[in-house]
């Protein structure tokens, strides 16, 4: 295998199969979503729920993975854990952005306003900002940037349980976590298929992003090798 092939951030057959599964889910889920019963109070706009919740779940999952990876990197010095944390952090920003955009569109119709400084909404926005800060710190933080960003990821991960329990502790306009267990049986297939589709997509994107990190590590090692050989000036 040439160095180029070794570093190429391609997907394995399993990942291609998962991507195909995810695309199939994307094609089937909208049909199930449209056939699901219409929620009587909010009406048609409630259908945003079927992809707003999976995005929120993945943003929190990404933050949790980034937090664990960062903790392992900080306390054990594992480079692999740092790469996993960086990949997960980027996906947290991606899915967090989807939550922050889809939520207000739903709220505009259901609540009459795009945004409320409600504790659930505020903690979610905070999570997104923390992980945007993570990416900036890692990219532009200089030699200590990765450690600084790892510290930020710990704060982000600590925000995840806060987001989840916020609706149970404080008075909030946001629906409670009991919505999912008490979902109408007609809504369940669309919801769970959507959750599965998005989760599989998350795994594929995570793998893709992780391979990019591995390629970067390979580039760094080659760069040092070239410096040692006097091919690159310091």
């Amino acid at each position: 295998m040439t160095p180029k092939e070794a570093s190429r951030p391609t997907l394995s057959i399993t990942m291609w199969a998962m991507l195909a599964l995810s695309i199939a889910g994307m094609l089937i889920a909208p049909q199930l979503i449209m056939r699901a019963p219409t929620e009587p109070t909010m009406g048609f706009v409630q259908r945003i729920f079927y992809f707003h919740v999976p995005c929120a779940w993945l943003a929190m999952l990404g933050a949790f993975v980034a937090g664990i990876g960062s903790a392992v990197y900080l306390f054990k010095g594992s480079e692999r854990a740092e790469q996993i944390a960086a990949a997960a952090a980027e996906l947290t920003v991606l899915f967090g952005l989807c939550v922050i955009v889809s939520g207000p569109l739903w709220a505009r119709k259901a609540w009459g306003v795009f945004w409320q400084w409600d504790v659930r909404l505020t903690t979610t926005a905070l999570l997104w900002i923390i992980f945007v800060a993570y990416l900036f710190a890692r990219r532009y933080g200089g030699p200590g940037g990765r450690r600084l960003s790892a510290g930020l990821a710990l704060f982000g991960a600590a925000d995840v349980p806060m987001i989840y329990i916020s609706v149970s502790i404080w008075r909030t306009i946001h629906p409670k976590t009991s919505v999912v267990p008490s979902l109408d049986p007609g809504m369940r297939p669309a919801f769970w298929l959507s959750m599965l589709t998005f989760t599989v997509l998350f795994v594929v994107l995570m793998q893709m992003r992780l391979r990019l990190e591995q390629a970067r590590a390979r580039y760094s090692s080659l760069y040092l090798q070239a410096q040692d050989a006097g091919l690159i000036d310091d």
């Binding site: 951030p9 994307m26 989807c98 994107l205």
Partner: peptide, 30 residues
Amino acid sequence: AYGFIWLAVLVFVAYTAKRAANLEGEIAHL
């Protein structure tokens, strides 16, 4: 909302692919 989500995913995939392609070129060169 649905369109935005898939647009965001598409942009992410395209951006990641572009970064991977650039990196591949630099690794091959080195």
